[in-house]
């Protein structure tokens, strides 16, 4: 990576843009991601939001943010960003507002909005080369509505619409949609995956992306203790496990060119990650589903076998 301000955690700026007191669950990974991401972005930001858990950060008359926020609709936050970006550009160009009034336009949505109902809107915005950031906080299901399956739910996970039963022992039997690749296929200037456990990696990526004009998209693993059935205190630990098992690769793509920014020296078995979450409990109890676990392990191994070290 090129020259960076961020060498260690000590370099993380102290300024907070998000104050405490939101109604999000204790230990919410998405909240931590947004807090850290905002520090990396700096000030002068307007967030454009689609319906999801993080929508409840700001409910009248309260907002935790010191920056602007615009809740639009579930399916069209990127189009909302388009309107704001275009309006600011026009008003500055026509001299109706001062250039110092300019803002970074940042879409923040869940995985359901990003991978399902809002995918068309995202594709349009990337195609038009909209100058914006997109932060997807991926908790791998429709969290806000009670953790139903989204197309981002991993295979083998139980959700409230993919309950494991004797007819469906895997729970969710569909694969997780590869949003990174979908985004990358548009060849935007910058796409990256991030994890709240790997903070320096996250900061360097945001730092790098700030050099590009056009779409800059971030897919953030966002542990959800409530939906995943995990210890609230272990959100960061789980995110780290996802990286160390190789389930959540940390990578970036600059104009489509992929680089892995962290390669786990010795990948831990996926079982370590699966067994501590209730959404995967059916793979272990009442009898261990060795086949399903081996299949998940195989998919991870196959992924990494194609990664050039």
């Amino acid at each position: 990576m090129s020259i960076t301000k961020y060498k260690t955690l000590k370099d993380v700026p102290r300024e907070e843009f998000l104050v405490s007191g939101t109604s999000l669950c204790a230990g919410c990974g998405a909240l931590l991601v947004i807090r850290l991401f905002h520090k990396a972005l700096g000030d002068n930001v307007v967030w454009v939001n689609a319906a999801g858990c993080v929508t409840l950060m700001a409910t009248f008359p309260y907002t935790p943010l010191k920056s602007s926020w615009f809740y639009t609709a579930m399916g069209s936050a990127p189009a909302g960003a388009q309107g704001i970006r275009d309006a600011l550009d026009i008003l500055i160009k026509k001299g109706k507002i001062d250039p110092t009034e300019n803002l970074k336009v940042v879409v923040v949505t869940g995985d359901g909005a990003a991978s399902d109902i809002g995918l068309q809107s995202t594709s349009g915005a990337i195609h038009r080369n909209l100058d914006f950031f997109y932060l997807c906080v991926d908790n791998e299901a429709y969290g806000n509505t009670g953790f139903q399956a989204s197309s981002s739910s991993p295979i083998g996970s139980g959700t409230t619409t993919t309950r494991p039963t004797h007819l469906y022992p895997m729970g969710n039997f569909l694969p997780k949609k590869d949003l990174f690749e979908i985004w990358r296929s548009h060849r935007p200037p910058y796409v990256a995956t991030i994890s709240p456990s790997h903070v320096v990696d996250m900061f360097r990526k945001v730092e790098k992306s700030l050099n590009f004009k056009g779409p800059k998209l971030f897919l953030a693993l966002s542990p959800c203790p409530t939906g995943w059935g995990a210890e609230v205190s272990e959100s960061v630990k789980l995110a780290r496990l996802a990286v160390e098992t190789g389930i959540w690769p940390l990578k970036e793509a600059v104009y489509g060119e992929v680089t892995h920014t962290y390669i786990p020296p010795k990948r831990r078995p996926v079982e370590d990650y699966l067994k501590v979450q209730r959404r995967f409990a059916h793979l272990f109890k009442p009898v261990k589903n060795e086949g399903a676990i081996a299949e998940i392990q195989k998919q991870v191994d196959e992924y990494w076998s194609k990664v050039v070290h």
């Binding site: 639009t72 609709a73 189009a79 960003a81 550009d89 809107s121």
Partner: peptide
């Protein structure tokens, strides 16, 4: 600025946020 978008849902979203931004 003329901006052809990908659907009327996006069209109306962009129209609304742009108006709220002052255009």
């Amino acid at each position: 600025t003329f901006m052809q978008v990908e659907s009327e849902h996006s069209l109306l979203t962009a129209a609304g946020t742009a108006a709220a931004t002052g255009a």
